[in-house]
Design a protein around this nucleic acid. Sequence first.
RNA 1: GUGGGAGUAGCUCAAUUGGUUAGAGCACCAGAUUGUGGAUCUGGGGGUUGCGGGUUCGAUUCCCGUCUCUCACCCCA
Length: 460
Amino acid sequence: MSDNTKFGPPKGMRDWLPQETLLRQKLIRLIEHHYQLYGFQPIDTPVMENIEVLQGKGVGENEKLMFRVAKRGEEFSNSIQVVSNAGAQVVDNHGRSAVALNEITDMGLRFDLTVPLARYYSNHSNDLPKPFRCYHIGPVWRADRPQKGRYREFYQCDIDIIGGASDAYEVELLLATDRVLKELNVGKFRIRVSDKRLLPALLTGMGVEGDKVPGVAAALDKLDKQPYEQVKKEIEALGHSLEVLGKVDAFIQNALHKKLEPAHFKLGEAEALAGHIESIRQRVHEVNPDANVVFDPLLVRGFDYYTGPVFEINVEDKDFTFSIGGGGRYDGLIEKLGGPKGTPAVGISLGFERILLILMEKAKAAAQAHSSRVFIVNNGQPEKDILALAEHLRAEGIQVEASLENKKLGQQLEAAQKNGIEYAITKFEQGKASFTVRQLSTRQDKEMTKEELGKTLKNL
RNA sequence: GUGGGAGUAGCUCAAUUGGUUAGAGCACCAGAUUGUGGAUCUGGGGGUUGCGGGUUCGAUUCCCGUCUCUCACCCCA
């Protein structure tokens, strides 16, 4: 134990065993495949960005959670000098300070894929089609305290459309996301849609004072985890007139019981915003009536860079109260990173680790990835015969693991199965075109040629 | 950043109000036996009880600190 824990992976980061790696690769390939079906092109960016790219882009607390990267070589020594010359007041009780951090670090690990994408588009917009449809899958880092479904290193799967102002792009992103989540088989989920400006407009329309709007929104954001009664208390604690409270309560009750009518939105600019989101929802359902997309005016998303429609995805399971994805329209971000003025953009991000967690916990068996290797049992044949058969199969593109030790048959088969192998060649003869193939999970034997074997493995 | 819970063999867990040399199952290794699936027998390796201090004649057990893991809050995918 002590030897194992002394040198574990860093807090909140994980190692992956072969079986787990296979499963991750399989799921990522599935996601990619469907993104490609919708015409999105792959891109990639460095895991680090210069610190100016990551700072001040309206990502809320994520910026505080950034892993910063220290300067290197002489620059680092110089920065230490500057900090120590500045005196003790720059050092807080954790031995750092904003001044020291900015002096000593010049890069950071990305904490999402959207900000790097905006930087990427700004740099390459001349070489990219308009609108640009891309997907971006990779690890991001946040120095958060880990807990269930929350890690310090995790993969995000983003699709984005940049340079398209039409809300038809929202419709298409929602269709693609719905499709991918169904292919992944995550169970019941809801893609909630609203407009960032809608809830504040509704609340002010009901008479909530401006400085109390964020507090009410923050309380409503907890509805996934807490019963309304508790949220209601939090809203009441902010101090509103009875008349306002009554209106707010009535609206929330109606929203929770899905009894909202267009009349409920006749509050200033809320009417137009709600109408717009409702139209997006309708157009999604015109194309795919089964899409799990709902208009939820109570949806709150924290990022400042969103400018219009926003999305959040949840599974309908009380064991998984976290969101498995989110997104929205961020029309100002690219310009902020030096891109063409007024470049519109919209995207949705899936939280790969959380989806994987759900798949693992809900359907452990179904979430197993079989290796497409075939195992050649060693029955004491000459080594050259076994290796020759292996080479023969490899020439056909079949992945082969040959047993080179004449252990007990049971041991060999058990070990192979434990390693995720599903098919084993238990008998073969030199010069014979077919051999005995056993499916390890069912223990059924079948005589096959190498072509038949190749087909069987491909279908795993 | 805040708060709760837990750390004993590779894994799952024992160890009487604090009391001999910290045990068991599984796993692993070797040998025998079996010879087309997990069997059986024999033997074996394995631990600074997370780490450091304190109380005590004596600490896995009680106290303090610390580290790690975990759950929740904040925030988020």
